[in-house]
Structure formats: structure tokens, C-alpha cells
């Protein structure tokens, strides 16, 4: 159970991709771990942890038919790590601004320099084709106080990038 592979599958979105792929794995007694599956720009994307008796070559072979039929591209990497390693976020950063070169690199660079570790980043382009707006939500863990991060991003605000940082107070009940 401890040998995990990371499967990356992408292809034009259509109904049944998840069902077909996971059916093949189930029929071969493979276990699924954590996964992220979502539609990006009309494509369906899957990143999924898989473990069991099969190695990368066997997985590739087992999935070859469904991959060909659904027009997917498949990539398999052995991975370190495993389940039950969740790190809860303690800060949420919301970003929006006119879409322009480097906005993601600028924002995440400032956060990284301030000691912020990204756990989950969602980004999207809203607005119109003429006036696109970049919107990001970043959940992560900071080891420095909120005030230090505020200080770090204040320069971005002057450049017209809206950055809003709020604490995530986890509730356990």
C-alpha cells in the first residue's frame, strides 16, 4: 500500500472520463488516494494517487485502451509520500487585478519571500476578452504573523493588484 504513483490525465472534456478511468483501476484491484479533478479551459484534468500491485509500466498498459478511446494524455510518476499528511491552512489570500504579464509570479514571489507556503491555489480569468481580470484564491500556511505578510504585499496594492489576506481559524468540534 505504500508505493504510490501519481497519475496525470488530461484531455478534451466529455462525460465518462472519471468513470472509465477509475473502473479500469478498480477492476485491477488498484487503490485510489487523494485526487484533484477539474475542468480547465474545456479540458478535463486529473491528478490522482494510485497504489497497489502494479508498477508504472503495468499501469500504462492497463490504461492504454481507455486513454486511446477518450483521447487522453497520460503521465505516470512514482512518488514519495502518502496519505494522512494533510496540513491545514491558516491563511487565505484573495487576489484580483487586471490580467497582465507576471501577476501570478509577482504575488506568489512576494508570498514565498515572506515565508508563505501554498497548499491550494485556484486561479481564473474573469472579465471580458478585451479586459480580462485575473482572480486567485490561495490557501496556505504562514509561519510569520499576518501583519508581516500585509506589509510584504502592500507594494502590490500600489501597483493596482487587489490583495486581501485573511486568517483561517480552523474550528474543530
Amino acid at each position: 500500500m505504500s508505493n504510490w504513483y501519481m497519475l496525470t490525465l488530461t484531455g478534451e472534456d466529455r462525460p465518462g472520463i472519471v468513470a472509465r478511468v477509475t473502473r479500469v483501476l478498480f477492476e485491477r484491484d488498484m487503490n485510489l488516494g487523494e485526487a484533484s479533478m477539474l475542468r480547465l479551459g474545456g479540458n478535463f484534468t486529473i491528478m490522482m494517487m494510485v497504489s497497489g500491485h502494479m508498477d508504472a509500466d503495468a499501469l500504462q498498459q492497463a490504461l492504454s485502451e481507455v486513454v486511446r478511446e477518450l483521447g487522453l494524455s497520460l503521465h505516470i510518476d512514482p512518488m514519495k509520500g502518502g496519505l494522512h499528511r494533510h496540513v491545514p491552512p491558516n491563511l487565505m489570500v484573495r487576489v484580483s487585478g487586471a490580467d497582465r504579464a507576471g501577476i501570478v509570479a509577482r504575488v506568489t514571489g512576494v508570498l514565498a519571500d515572506a515565508g508563505f507556503n501554498i497548499l491550494d491555489l485556484e486561479s481564473d480569468v474573469a472579465g471580458t476578452a478585451e479586459q480580462p481580470v485575473y482572480i486567485m484564491q490561495i490557501a496556505g500556511v504562514a509561519t510569520v504573523p499576518l501583519e508581516s505578510l500585509e506589509q510584504a504585499v502592500s507594494g502590490l496594492r500600489e501597483e493596482g493588484i487587489e490583495v486581501n489576506i485573511s486568517p483561517v481559524e480552523m474550528l474543530v468540534g
Binding site: 494533510h86 491545514p88 483561517v168 480552523m170 474550528l171 474543530v172 468540534g173
Partner: peptide, 10 residues
């Protein structure tokens, strides 16, 4: 808001 639970570990 973000929640966890004693009855739902990890």
C-alpha cells in the same frame, strides 16, 4: 469557514 471534527479524523 474551515471546519474539522473529532469524529472525522484527518
Amino acid at each position: 469557514g474551515r471546519e474539522g471534527c473529532l469524529s472525522v479524523p484527518d
